[in-house]
Design a protein around this nucleic acid. Structure first.
Lengths: 95, 95
DNA sequence: TAGATATTTAGACAAATATCTAAATAAGAC
DNA sequence: GTCTTATTTAGATATTTGTCTAAATATCTA
């Protein structure tokens, strides 16, 4: 997994909001953009950062480019986060 | 919890390494710094960012300032991360 | 073909950030 | 009190980053 890319991607509030918005399901770039007050170009930049971190996947559908969450990454990422802290005495699982 | 501060703090690899280093237990600023090739001033800057995010706590002990992980934050933070992704374990459609 | 829509790419720019050196602060040793 | 050690703060600078406008690319429709 692309650790640094994922942490960096999540550091921006707009990108976290994009991920949140994708929780409801796949959405085109334009639909995602409706919720934000930035230009399509800026949005596209954020998509690129999220893609580079493997947090989202894309699929072209006609004129549209549809974005969806790469849900499998969450496990790796959450584990990575937990791994930054000492084991929390439960189930003796070591991080 | 200081969401943005925490995400931002973790975006830097040096700061993540500092947290890792603190897993072994509390440590003075100087001891932490032995593992890194940056000046004490730069290190101090990273400490400030981590403190602002409540990820570490400090305690002066004589000449030294001892840093320790604020372990309670991990739960909030992990939950926050998980919250960015769709609920898992029920519909878990992996694709 | 031309034109409209959807999205990305390129280039520029201001704000944020990581780093440094130098100076300041705090505590212990003499 | 003065010196030494530990750490932070202040100020400067180069890099990174988020945003914009303008242009390019891709697809659809007539």
């Amino acid at each position: 997994m692309k650790q640094q890319a994922a942490f960096r991607a999540l550091a921006d509030p707009t990108r976290r909001a994009i991920l949140k918005r994708l929780q409801g399901g796949a959405m085109s770039a334009g639909e995602i953009g409706e919720a934000f007050d930035i230009t399509p170009a800026s949005l596209s930049h954020h998509f690129a950062v999220l893609k580079q971190a493997d947090l989202v996947r894309t699929e072209r559908r006609g004129q549209f480019i549809v974005y969806s969450l790469n849900s499998t990454v969450v496990e790796d990422f959450a584990r990575m986060v937990l791994d930054l802290f000492p084991a929390k005495g439960k189930t003796g699982a070591k991080g």
